[in-house]
Design a protein around this nucleic acid. Sequence first.
RNA 1: GCUCGUGUAGCUCAGUGGUAGAGCACUCCCUUGGUAAGGGAGAGGUCGUCGGUUCAAUCCCGACCACGAGCUCCA
Length: 652
Amino acid sequence: MQVFLPDGKALDLQNGATALDAASLIGPKLAEQAIGARANGKLWDLLTPLPEGAKLEILTTRKPAEAIDLMRHTLAHVMAQAILEVYGSKGFARDSIKMGVGPVIENGFYYDFDLPEPLKFEELEILENKMREIIARDLKLSRYEVTREQALAEFAGRDRYKTELIEGLPDNEPMTFYRQGSEADFTDLCRGPHIPRTGLIPPHFKLTATSGAYWRGSEKNPMLQRIYGVAFATAAELEKYLWQQEEAKKRDHRKLGKDMDLFTFSDEVGQGLPLWLPKGAFIRKKLEDYMYEKEQEYGYDYVISPHITKEALYHRSGHLPYYADGMYAPIEIEGENYYLKPMNCPHHHMIFAARPKSYRDLPARYAEFGTVYRFELSGALTGLARVRGFTQNDAHIYCAKSQVKEEFIKVIKLFEEVYKDFGISDYWFRLSLPDFENNPEKFGEPGPNWDESIAAIRAALEETGAQFVEGIGEATFYGPKLDVQLRTVVGKEESIATNQLDFIVPSRFDLEFTNANGEKETPVVIHRAIMGSFDRFFAFYLEHTAGNFPVWLAPEQARIITISDRHLDYAKQLEAQMKQQKLRVTVDSSSERMQAKIRDAEIAKVPFILIVGDKEILENAVSVREHGKGDRGKVSTTSLMSEIHERVEKRI
RNA sequence: GCUCGUGUAGCUCAGUGGUAGAGCACUCCCUUGGUAAGGGAGAGGUCGUCGGUUCAAUCCCGACCACGAGCUCCA
């Protein structure tokens, strides 16, 4: 057979030859340095027979990053062998250890084990050292194909997970095993690909975590112990990854929320029910005021609806019984069931329906900072990012089908404006589409409603030039979605806001308007949430800024620090003067040294630190120290105040 | 919800089968110092909750509650 090298040259090989054979034919040096290959663009290992006519590229130790996934995969196997050896030396029989799957994941790998006794987090170091030992042994990997019967026989009676995996494999593909070292070392059912020797694994890996994970991800199955590791081709990458983890820990909104007295939770109040402390509430109110102003500009009408509502409304909306699991249990009052509202749309529909509507009234845009309650799984709760009671930056736009595109353009523009004002630039839209084939019970039948609405959103995206990706099967049952995703400062992807087109529920509420021909017509609804929920947005933004809020949001914009007590009168005067100008300023009149006061103010992340002493008093000035930037020297009081005002105005 | 881990002062965390400690923060006193910690004293805890074992439990056991990691779910 023939394969083709990157320069187009053909290479003649025996049938069943591997990339290693090809490399050896090219040269012994290459064969020695080879760690993997790419066949027709796909990551391939040196042990697997090449397909006829493949475009072949040999990956070498010179560019280890290209083959990092091979190494990660082999590391998972090395970890499995290390588990066998560590538990062996604890006195456990080899067959008492059962294994799930051990795949490559972003940045690393994991392996799921069913262990006779759990591995403690502290033992990860022992395991990791054992892995390094196995790597140092430089075990050679080999690959062989077996029949289903042979594969089953290998695990019969000792590993139900592997047996189950084998039973689920398709008939038409060969089953392959990878062995490192001898039979006494480690052999696993595996589709590959792997590197040829354990000695090629770079030392830049680290076991990071242990956790439980259900066999095959189903809570009906037993829980296995998962061990996670990260691995990189270079020390620099590993360091960067670990740095990012550290940084993420430092920026964790739960930590900052505590340190900066922004919000808290209380056992006695309940899980997932946040208490906003004065400083956090101040910022949240600023966010709400900001959105209110923006929405006024964009033609939204503000509405208000109750937190609790009769059961029947949620039958009509279709939430019950389908969404009952996500709702708090009902409260019975005077023989009727009331629910805490999990969303605002039914109420807005009732507001729309409360008065007859003409096409002249459309689009009707109802906005509400609606507080909703959802019964999230307790294990899913995370600080303010996932709570059970939260306030949405919610709005529903009722419009004719012909207005959908125009309205989506406005929504996209509003997003862009808001995100710009908050310094968020790494975001994109995701158009979520239905998957009729695989989920007909959710999405129903394809039809003009779907086609037209998807086309309208697409057109809006194209017209605004917004960057977007598509996701199949992620739409809602009532229409396509346009989610907003962003990348956080520590590289994590998050979905923060969502916009959904709804062409089904309005008719359940008998919503209608009179069109230009005097006929009744059903509007479509756009559910949109620019900030999503204020709670989650706040959590995100806190991490985004690491708590260094811009001046317009900072609860304390400036702190005056005196050099000695005799400057306190001047400081108080200055405070009064600035407060008159609606600036949020305090005086630190404690008996600490100036250095200590500066440190306190820096830790509190106060944007402006104003130092006053004899020199400043003489010139009616302050010495400005900007948070995180250091001493800026003397500035006149008036120019400082106008600078702050300007920055508040520009939101920087 | 599930598995594992954790719960001691406002915060970060030590510690012990004989009812408890540090640092920071707080209060007071001394210090009046020019850009990230001056010194001293004091106050502060039902050791998450309830039950069990024990002469004795913050410590051992159980249940519950909460938090964390991961899994799962997400109209």
